[in-house]
């Protein structure tokens, strides 16, 4: 079954291109918020596709080893932790007032804080 190996290798190649594009975005984008948009989150799909590729490449070890279980655990793990960490990081960056880039059109959160619709979480 050479074809399974080929499919797995091609999925690895696609995932590595996705990781490369996210790294290019990390270099080119003008401020922290846009870097997160391309940097850590575009790489999530790349990592998932690569893990599926690894699982397909090792098709001959599906019966005895626990490869496929480990691969599924890693995919679920990345899907659960990645949004939480990027949300916490960006929330911290916003409230320690890392500046938004000049291209930013609208900031509804700042408007609402200025109009006292919501409270800014202080350093209590």
């Amino acid at each position: 079954m050479e074809i399974m190996k080929l499919v797995g290798a091609i999925m690895l190649l696609m995932g590595s291109f996705s990781l490369l594009i996210s790294a290019i975005g990390l270099l080119r984008m003008p401020d922290v918020y846009n870097r997160v948009q391309t940097g850590t989150k575009a790489s999530t799909l790349g990592a998932i596709v690569s893990f599926i590729g690894v699982g397909l490449y090792k098709y001959d070890a599906w019966s005895d080893g626990n490869w496929i279980g480990r691969v599924i655990i890693l995919i679920i793990f990345i899907l659960l932790t990645n949004p939480v960490s990027s949300h916490v990081l960006m929330r911290a960056a916003y409230f320690m007032k890392v500046p938004l880039s000049k291209l930013t059109k609208v900031d509804k959160l700042k408007e609402d804080i200025d109009n006292n619709v919501i409270k800014e979480p202080g350093n209590e």
Partner: peptide
């Protein structure tokens, strides 16, 4: 730097 570290982590996991 933390964002870059996060990106490095995902690549090194793969």
């Amino acid at each position: 730097r933390v964002v870059a570290f996060d990106s490095l982590t995902i690549s090194s996991l793969v």
